[in-house]
C-alpha cells in the first residue's frame, strides 16, 4: 500500500471543510470519473476584497485525493483570489508533507479546482489545457500525446532523451518498453530507424586503475581521470551542473556546486528540490550525466550548504592548528 505521510493520513481520516458551502459564489468541478478522482470546490468570496471567506470540498476519490482537497481548502481560506492562485500543486503536496510520486496528480487536481472556481467567480470560462492520451509513465503521469509531441518537436531518438525532456521513464523504468515502441513509430515516420543495442555502448575505458587503492591519495593530488587536467575537469563538472539547472529551475528548484573532493562532488539542492521525494532521483540523474561527461565514476553528494561550510571551516581550523 502507499506510503502516506502522517499529515496525509490525518487529512484523510479527519478531513477539514468537507461538504459544500451554502452561500458559495465560486464553484470549480474538475477531475475524471474514468480515472476515479473528481473534486468540487466551493468558495465564498467577499466581493469587495476578493478574500476567500470560506471553502468546502466534495471529493470522489482515493485517500490522497481527499487529503489534497482538505489541504487545499485550509490553504485558501483567508487569502485573496490572486494570492490563492499562486498556490502550486507542489505547495499542496508540501502542505501534506509530500505525496507519493504516483499520487502527485491529486495535488494537480486541487490546483485545477482552484483555477476553475476562480474562473467561475470571475465569469470566465476555464479550459483545461490537458490533452488526454493513454498514460505511459505512471510515476510522473506523462501520457502518450505529450511524449509523441515532444519527440516530434525535438527530433528525439532515445529513451534517455525522452526522459530528459518529459521526465517520462525517469522513475521505475517499467514504461521504457512502451516509450521505445513510440520512438520506433515516430522515428519511422521521419524516415529513421530505432535500433538500439540492449546495453549502452561503452566509452573507451580510461587508463586502468587498480580496483582497490590501498593508500588513499591526497584529494588534491588525485590524478584527473579521462586525460583531463584538474582545471579541465573542474570546468567540465561546472558545465554539467549549469546544464541541469534550467530543468531544476523549471520545477522551482536549483542546484549549486559546493566542492570537489576526488570522486566526491558536493552540491546543494535548493528550493523545491530539497526534501522533495524526487531529490534522490534528481541526484541520480545528475550523477549519471556527470559520469558520462567525465568518463569516470564520481559520486554526487547533496549536502546542506551552511552545514557543509561550517564543517569545512572546522576542518581547516584543525589542519592549521
Amino acid at each position: 500500500m502507499w506510503d502516506y505521510s502522517e499529515t496525509v493520513k490525518e487529512h484523510f481520516y479527519n478531513p477539514k471543510n468537507a461538504g459544500a458551502i451554502e452561500e458559495a459564489n465560486a464553484v470549480g468541478d474538475v477531475g475524471s470519473i474514468s480515472c476515479g478522482d473528481a473534486l468540487r470546490l466551493t468558495l465564498k468570496v467577499e466581493p469587495e476584497t476578493e478574500i476567500i471567506l470560506d471553502a468546502g470540498f466534495q471529493t470522489f476519490g482515493c485517500g490522497s485525493a481527499i487529503a489534497s482537497s482538505s489541504a487545499l481548502t485550509e490553504m485558501v481560506k483567508g487569502k485573496t483570489l490572486d494570492e490563492a492562485l499562486k498556490i502550486s500543486n507542489q505547495d499542496i503536496a508540501d502542505f501534506l508533507d509530500g505525496l507519493p510520486p504516483e499520487k502527485m496528480h491529486c495535488s494537480v487536481m486541487g490546483r485545477e479546482a482552484l483555477q476553475a472556481a476562480v474562473a467561475n467567480y470571475r465569469g470566465e470560462e476555464w479550459v483545461d489545457d490537458h490533452e488526454e492520451g493513454a498514460l505511459v509513465c505512471k510515476c510522473f503521469a506523462i501520457d502518450e500525446v505529450m511524449i509523441r509531441d515532444t519527440i516530434r518537436e525535438n527530433n528525439l531518438s532515445s529513451v534517455q532523451d525522452v526522459t530528459n525532456y518529459t521526465k517520462a521513464g525517469g522513475g521505475c523504468s517499467s514504461c521504457h518498453e512502451g516509450i521505445e515502441n513510440i520512438l520506433m513509430e515516430e522515428m519511422q515516420a521521419r524516415g529513421e530507424t530505432f535500433m538500439p543495442g540492449a546495453i549502452q555502448k561503452k566509452k573507451a575505458k580510461p587508463a586502468a586503475q587498480p580496483l582497490v587503492t590501498l593508500e588513499t591519495p591526497e584529494p588534491a593530488a588525485a590524478p584527473a581521470a579521462g586525460g583531463m587536467s584538474a582545471f579541465q575537469r573542474y570546468k567540465k563538472i561546472e558545465e554539467v551542473i549549469e546544464k541541469v539547472r534550467p530543468n531544476l529551475q523549471a520545477d522551482r528548484g536549483d542546484c549549486e556546486l559546493l566542492d570537489i573532493d576526488g570522486k566526491n562532488i558536493y552540491v546543494s539542492l535548493v528550493g523545491a528540490c530539497s526534501g522533495c521525494q524526487m531529490a534522490a532521483m534528481t541526484v541520480g540523474g545528475i550523477q549519471q550525466k556527470m559520469i558520462e561527461a567525465l568518463g569516470e565514476f564520481v559520486k554526487i553528494i547533496p549536502v546542506d550548504k551552511a552545514q557543509y561550510a561550517a564543517q569545512l571551516a572546522q576542518k581547516q581550523a584543525t589542519a592549521s592548528a
Partner: peptide, 30 residues
C-alpha cells in the same frame, strides 16, 4: 465512492480486502 478510500478506512479497523479501483490497481483505470 472510491475503493482505495474504503480500503484505507477498513484497514484502520483491522480489516483487509482489495478493490478494483484505479488507485489500488496502480493504473489510472478501474
Amino acid at each position: 465512492i472510491e475503493g482505495e478510500a474504503i480500503l484505507l478506512l477498513m484497514n484502520k479497523m483491522g480489516i483487509a480486502a482489495s478493490s478494483g479501483s484505479a488507485c489500488t490497481s496502480g493504473s489510472l483505470e478501474p
